[in-house]
Design a binder for these strands. Structure first.
Lengths: 217, 217
DNA sequence: GTAAAATTCAAACGTTCGTTTGAAACAAAC
DNA sequence: GTTTGTTTCAAACGAACGTTTGAATTTTAC
């Protein structure tokens, strides 16, 4: 049990090093050394570095998105025709990710996922494609809950919320505010509640009366 | 005027390519080719690739932070002892950056800055150090405006706001919500107003009564 | 116009990268 | 025990990287 499959050890090492030093800055030699495997093992098990990267993401991403869809399905089935409560929708969206953060290895993955939004290249496209159904479903749910918001307003607010979420996942040092060395680290559950409170208030904010001629639906 | 200093052309090319392909993935050969300069020119003018990167940031970062401080100084001088209006504080913080986005070259820089938060390495540390005074000043201003918020609550909410802001700056394709091909691109001014509305509401959200025993000040 | 300084240039340096290879080691099947 | 298929290994490949060098070129100063 100390040494699982070479394939698994490679994925673990790659994920760890990707978080520590970034994907580009991590060489296959770093990965295989950390995994105590031969340099050629990556190309044997995955074919190439690119496919290793995709495998690192694929391992956790599909279950995560499936769970987000499942929770929304469940909520909408219970609710029938009535729109969901905003905080309930947000919690369904966020909970699977925050639960991943309980476990060290999945936590690394969440961190990697948070950073992905600001990555360049085709990798983002590929991951985003898998995320599109989740996005579409939750956006529709939010539209039903906040029908007074035009699609432009809602889109921007969702954009801001995604940013707050990604940043929370991506930046491990958490609270960047220094001051006294208090015990800042809250539980994941508590952090999620803070985020839900913040995002829900932002999403619910009254639309300011436009004083200029912007294209508002 | 078509060909400014080699030094300047190198900075422009590096900035452009950093945004397009990421810092690590951009080679000095890419930079010098794009700048129509010799490969050795980077090491001649800057010393090394690392110092080129720092120069790209230094060029715009210091004026930006200085302006943020200046605006806050001005507001606090006018207000005297009374705390600032929340939206006013946020606008002072955001306006210098959004104004940078009007110009194409500075806009690239803003994009680069937004992505920096999720970068690894010592570069972030170096940039963050320059940002610390701004952070301290604005955090104090927010504390005066929102005195009912404990430092932990406020810290997290600022964290979320920074995330929303960084994401807005970093992701150029802007609205990730597809649907109809409407004219989604608003003016920078309008986007800033959307962000201020969202962040102000999030910051002002009532603190939920804690049902569990979290460490709340 | 000439001397001095600053800049550009082509070429090469040593490293590190991702990938390939073919033999060795191991496992499973009969 | 031999055969077959899978996995590991050390070694090498060519390509691309950041950097250095020393001569050529341009700019500056007098």
């Amino acid at each position: 049990m100390n040494t699982p499959d070479t394939r698994e050890r490679l994925l673990d090492a790659a994920q760890k090093l990707f978080v520590e030093h970034g994907i580009d800055a991590t060489s296959l030699r770093n990965v295989t050394t950390d995994a105590e495997a031969n340099l050629a093992s990556v190309n044997y098990h995955f074919g190439s570095k690119d496919e290793l990267i995709q495998a690192v993401f694929a391992r956790h991403l599909e279950p995560l998105n499936k769970e987000r869809i499942r929770l929304l399905d469940e909520l909408e089935r219970e609710a029938g025709d009535t729109p969901l409560y905003l905080e309930t929708t947000l919690e369904a969206f966020l909970k699977p990710t925050f639960e991943m953060m309980q476990n060290q290895k999945s936590r690394e993955f969440v961190c990697l996922l948070g950073r992905l939004f600001t990555e360049s290249s085709e990798l983002k496209m590929l991951i985003m494609h898998q995320f599109q159904e989740v996005q579409k479903r939750y956006f529709a749910a939010l539209q039903r809950t906040l029908p007074h918001l035009g699609i432009i307003d809602l889109s921007w607010r969702v954009h801001f919320m995604i940013g707050a979420m990604a940043h929370t996942f991506a930046v491990p040092e958490k609270l960047s505010i220094p001051s006294s060395s208090e015990a800042y680290n809250l539980t994941e559950e508590s952090i999620m509640q803070h985020l839900i409170t913040f995002a829900a208030a932002g999403l619910r904010a009254p639309v300011p009366s436009q004083t200029n001629g912007d294209n508002q639906k």
